[in-house]
Amino acid sequence: MIDDVSFALTRGETLGLVGESGCGKSVTAMAVMGLNPEPPSRVESGRILLEGRDLLGLGPAMREIRGERIGMIFQEPMTSLNPTYTIRFQIAEAIRLHRPVSRARAHAEVLELLRMVGIGAPERRMNQYPHELSGGLRQRVMIAMAIACRPALLIADEPTTALDVTVQSQILDLIKRLQAEMGMSVLLITHDLGIVAETCDRVIVMYAGRIVEEAAVGALYARPLHPYTAGLMASRPRLGHRQPVLPTIPGMVPSPGQRGAGCHFADRCARVQDRCRDTAPPLEHVEAERKLACWNPMP
């Protein structure tokens, strides 16, 4: 599903992982969390280092890292919140799973966390059940659970895709604020290039299981080098930039069974050359802070 994916996040940094469905961005994040079901899935090779520790060999000890050093939020909060327990119980459990604090202490921390994520009337809200909350509030509750143990890394997988645009700005703003307050690193997985531009420091573009381009956000948007990145940017209508016909990328993403030996984008690429079909281009530095996997990049 994913192939030779390497990247690093520094402390306090926000890294965007962008791509369309099936590109492997969520699989990558789940691999970091050790959450891909085995079998059928399997990490065949590679390492995942968090603060110097390799997570892949940890086995059951991974459970302590997950939730404590790495927090995670998903697109649909209802899949992670238990509908039969109150908000208070679920956040308290997230705390007590990793730290032996008293019931009273956990209660106080729940209130504090709900305040931190901007939930008004937390004393009332914490006794409610997930279904009693709006989508935006549920996402705030999930963020509260994810940061309960002050993780070093927050993985946010399409955290605002299910939300309305005015609520989306609230949540993105909240993640940014918490990151600054707590010095967290954030791995933000999204299909939305606008969100990446507004929230990330660096960005990785994935296509069909591989990284095709990695750059600082400013550099990437100023000049995308991979034809896929360029095509993706051009094909999205932009407010205030109306054009009669949108540029398109022909065809569609190959499924894992249809991927050939060469560059996975070759069949859709306007700049394709013979060797693109035979040999996959390696991801290599093209500048100090920039990597690219392409035999015939954009001029």
Binding site: V165, T166, Q168, S169, Q170, L172, D173, D192, L193, G194, I195, V196, A197, E198, T199, V217, G218, Y221, M233, R236, R238, L239
Partner: peptide, 17 residues
Amino acid sequence: SSVPTPDPGRRAQRIML
């Protein structure tokens, strides 16, 4: 104003509702 713009140079002034 809430629509994220794919232009990192212009992180828009947002009206937060």
